[in-house]
Design a binder for these strands. Sequence first.
DNA 1: CCTGCATTCATTGTATACAAACAGAAATCA
DNA 2: TGATTTCTGTTTGTATACAATGAATGCAGG
Lengths: 223, 223
Amino acid sequence: MTVYESIKRSIIHGEFPPKMRLTEEYLANKLQTSRTPIREALKQLESEGLTVSMKRGVRVRHFTKKDIQQIYDLRTLLEGYAAAQAAIHRTENDLENIRLANESYDQAIDSYIKNGETTIEDILEINHQFHNAVIQASQNQHVYSHISKVVVVPLIFRSFYWFNEEQLKHSLDAHKTLLKAIEEQDMERARVAMHEHIYHGRDEVLKQIDNIDAQYSDGEEIQ
Amino acid sequence: MTVYESIKRSIIHGEFPPKMRLTEEYLANKLQTSRTPIREALKQLESEGLTVSMKRGVRVRHFTKKDIQQIYDLRTLLEGYAAAQAAIHRTENDLENIRLANESYDQAIDSYIKNGETTIEDILEINHQFHNAVIQASQNQHVYSHISKVVVVPLIFRSFYWFNEEQLKHSLDAHKTLLKAIEEQDMERARVAMHEHIYHGRDEVLKQIDNIDAQYSDGEEIQ
DNA sequence: CCTGCATTCATTGTATACAAACAGAAATCA
DNA sequence: TGATTTCTGTTTGTATACAATGAATGCAGG
């Protein structure tokens, strides 16, 4: 794992919480390396928006509720577009990949509900694979980099997630609707299916944020 | 000007042409600095997609015609969204900024046509200000970072641009239509106006690329 | 007690030395 | 001759020393 990936992981997993100051020496010590690779990694993280730098030093970015809303709006737009394009441009091979990811997702949720070995982390990962398969099928190489930027942020709130059986099944249904629309090359239905799917996720996350913690109100600004 | 800005500028202005290898020492020499700041800048540029790194070293990214098409599609999507949001959410202050930028644009084009002191570079800059004013009015802080990523790439082909009187006036009309839609809070008309505006630009750039140079065919891949 | 200034400390910015890795040339052997 | 290996030079990766710069602290004067 590179230095960059390691820091990113720590941010996403909440080990480095929002607003935490990241000094170079601290990170260098923690990751058993020198400051040079740390600085490079921090520059990358900053241009991806996961950190903010001030006159002196850099902090983990704090996202307000408003940020989450806006980021989800962009994600809806971008993934909706990807789904619509996938409906038109998908090859047979792409279709096969989406079907496979869909099956894995089906099984994972089944296993999770039946108290199998599957964890929430597994489900998130397989969900991610399904979405990636759709993006791949859109045949637009550039859309991926934009989507990955908006996908990461809500993961920071992962610890809040609470998936009940109903939500998971709802999500599975959404994937199936989407798959069908892409199979039938129905651009608009694909877009709408993706829109609804993501908006549903957005609502869930926002609800959780509201319930569990008040520190994400819009009042506070990113330092 | 920071090291990062300087390298970026050189890429955009074609001084560092596509596929050119950028060695750290060369850049350090050229910019009269050491390798450390150069490496940081290169990492940033890479995560913005302006360079590609190989096993050894980094090169200026080469964009094919297909890349340009896809990037313009994304720009259309994103700026169209920004325009629609601006129509709903713009404040009076935003409106004033857009109007001002529009006026500057009007004057600049007038001056350019009448062989005033205004250059194409000036017009590009003022056009940019107008678009930024619209993005600002959308009230979505995050959309800007995505748009700036897709706006930069076509600039690399700036040397191909050929603006005739007709095109400039067409562009000015488009801005005015957009401004009106935003004034009247007509979301859909704002979106459509922006879509058409950008698609027009896209067509022009693609036409120029076709005419002037054959090296951007899809066959070649980015090394 | 508060405000402005100076000193001190922590941390970042930059340069540079050295180690590691890769690419290309040269040499060796079949 | 052609393939494979070894050697060599160039360029990147990492560590570290030192310089520069904010931030914090304390002190003096109003």
